[in-house]
Design a protein around this nucleic acid. Structure first.
Lengths: 207, 207
DNA sequence: ATGAAAGTGTAGCCTATTTAACATATTTTT
DNA sequence: AAAAATATGTTAAATAGGCTACACTTTCAT
């Protein structure tokens, strides 16, 4: 998640072909293991993509802000290998497989648009993989830094446990690092919100 | 890497539109950071996909056997975020961006074929992410188990160091686990090749 | 064929993280 | 407004896996 990312994908003109759906906070848009049909475009809200591994541990893979696609892995009606949960009440447009196929025929420009999106998702996953060669401090630094970068204009509700789930560390480790940073004046914590005082410090940690 | 995977993607009829290229063992097909143009289809040989993270550590992401695509991340001429290196002398077909665009127009069936491939790549990456919540023993077990599964008919040259690079463990840890397993009769090591005696043990470790 | 380079076997120390455990605070549900 | 469910603060103990170091093998390049 939280990979710095400049392009906005312009799907607006295609939205009319999808079906609008509303999801309440905490509701699942799709669930790992169920069969999907097509994909979704997030118009409004905030969605968290998680994945449960073989031994039942849950990882946050990505936080999706509006104007991005979700669930592309099931374009061709296979099983979802992640779960998408609305963090805030959200509005999505659903594009079933068949709809999308028809659309593609009529709008060939969609192909590069779609593939760019998918490739971006791959990049996010790869970044996540690279995360795990780092020390825990570096992991957290990179995560926070990227979140600030990618979600400039969004207030992202991220708890200690979320950070743990994103990085694969335990909550206690996250707590320790955060506490240390607080003492060193690198971050400030005010009623469970984090303010980065010295972004350069985080940046240098990773370099 | 090494995700069990049943489908074979039938690109054969499209190969004529690509350019055939030969790569010697150890040669790079493309390199992380360079700009790519299109993608490659591996016809013959064996290719290893690696990625170097910010702090210079290298990870093996995937081992690609014939009849799969490589380098799809640069379909639209962006930077490669991985490096592909031939493990054996290999034959690939290169499909530059423009060629592929033309092809797509004439053969709409390529769209699902291509997207399936890309989605498969995403699955591989995700599996890799899930790997890191496991213990070192579990990581190695899963890796070996998957390799056996995916590469049934291939002899995959995988060294201790490769296992280390795949799992993110140190060579020493890999060695320790392997030694223990050998003593317990779970695997057998004969001139640096590994034979799994009790696949169920590996399976149970993860399940 | 030979020297260089890469991979493996092994030991021991050390510290960063995990686990466990419990108190307190906050948020959500009814 | 009370009860239930989540999230956080904190400590102490156990340990897994990292790093160092070095001898020995095998493979590769010329």
């Amino acid at each position: 998640m939280a990979t710095l990312y400049e392009h906005v994908f312009d799907w607006d003109s295609y939205l009319q072909f999808g079906t609008r759906q509303f999801f309440k906070r905490k509701e699942a848009i799709y669930s790992q293991g169920t069969c999907g049909d097509g994909f979704y475009f997030l118009k409004k809200g905030l969605v968290r993509i998680v994945s449960v591994n073989a031994s039942g541990k849950e990882r946050i893979l990505n936080i999706v802000i509006p104007n991005q696609l979700i669930g592309v892995q099931s374009l061709d009606q296979r099983q979802h290998f992640t779960t998408a949960i609305a963090v805030k009440d959200s509005v999505v447009y659903h594009f079933p497989c068949e709809t999308f196929k028809t659309l593609l025929k009529e709008h060939p420009k969609l192909v590069p648009l779609f593939s760019r999106t998918v490739i971006h998702k791959m990049k996010i996953l790869l970044d996540r993989i690279n995360l795990d060669t780092l020390t825990s401090e570096q992991k957290i630094a990179l995560l926070l830094h990227n979140i600030c970068y990618e979600f400039k204009n969004y207030e992202i509700p991220i708890s200690q446990q979320d950070i743990a789930s994103c990085t694969g560390l335990t909550r206690i480790t996250v707590y320790k690092v955060l506490k240390q940073w607080q003492e060193d004046g690198i971050i400030e914590i005010m009623n469970r919100k984090y303010y980065i005082k010295k972004p350069d410090f985080l940046r240098n940690l990773v370099n």
